[in-house]
Design a protein around this nucleic acid. Sequence first.
DNA 1: ATTAATGTTCAGAA
DNA 2: TTTCTGAACATTAA
Length: 269
Amino acid sequence: MVRGIRALAEGSILENVRRTPCSCRPILVDPPIAAINRRAAGKLIQQVRRRAKRIVLELETGDGFVIEPRMTGLMLVSDPPDVGHLRVEWLLQKGKLRRSLWFWDRRGLGTVRFLSRDHLAELLNGSTLGADALEMTAAQWLAALGRTRRAIKVALLDQALVAGIGNLYASEILHLAKISPQTQAASLSAIRVERLHAATQHVLSEAIRHEGSTLGDGTYRNALNQSGSYQNAHQVYDRAGEACPRCRTTILRIVQSQRSTFYCPRCQR
DNA sequence: ATTAATGTTCAGAA
DNA sequence: TTTCTGAACATTAA
């Protein structure tokens, strides 16, 4: 998402932000739009970046937007999947060009926040989120996982321990690392944590390279409303009953923390 | 027609 | 203190 909107957003002037007139319930925007516009309208968008699963639009003032797409949110520069679930529009101006950036969200669990410079710094460097999964060292992994007694799959989804892994990728990472999702996180040997570290780097960077996973319902789209292709590389996610690509054993689905986990009971120990 | 599932996060309870 | 549960929402499949 960040890659897709960066060229448009960075260096643009934000004319204003508005909720789009759609029939669905309003998503959380905080503070209210009018208050945001008083502080943000007319300002330059200096930088677009990612922090774990959040998108940050930072203004020249140091204040900035933090967007959480959650389950079904998308940042778009054009052609929404359907206009009925468009939620927020940023009107941008770059030279003579006037274009819009959109937040589309089918379920509406996503959020848009506008934070002061200080609160933004707290989000980016504070302790609510752990270190970013793609920037952590193996030693940081070992320390983070040693702090919990939960199963490794559950721990991987705790954004305060490791930030940036979602449900789908947790299953894929554990399969690649050959680790059972039910293993106690803190009981993993340093060697196995190193494997987990490497598997995370691999799965997440490949998923990003392939523009994400567009699953059966087709919700996930890049900023140009195009499907991703990483779903074609999935080994276990949503494949219960099928053969493990590595050892042909039947893939299982279990529920942990009210979320589905898919794994191979033979090659994941 | 219900019920459960879906890529997430958080408040409040245990 | 840490971990678990249910709710927020819209849509589809069973």
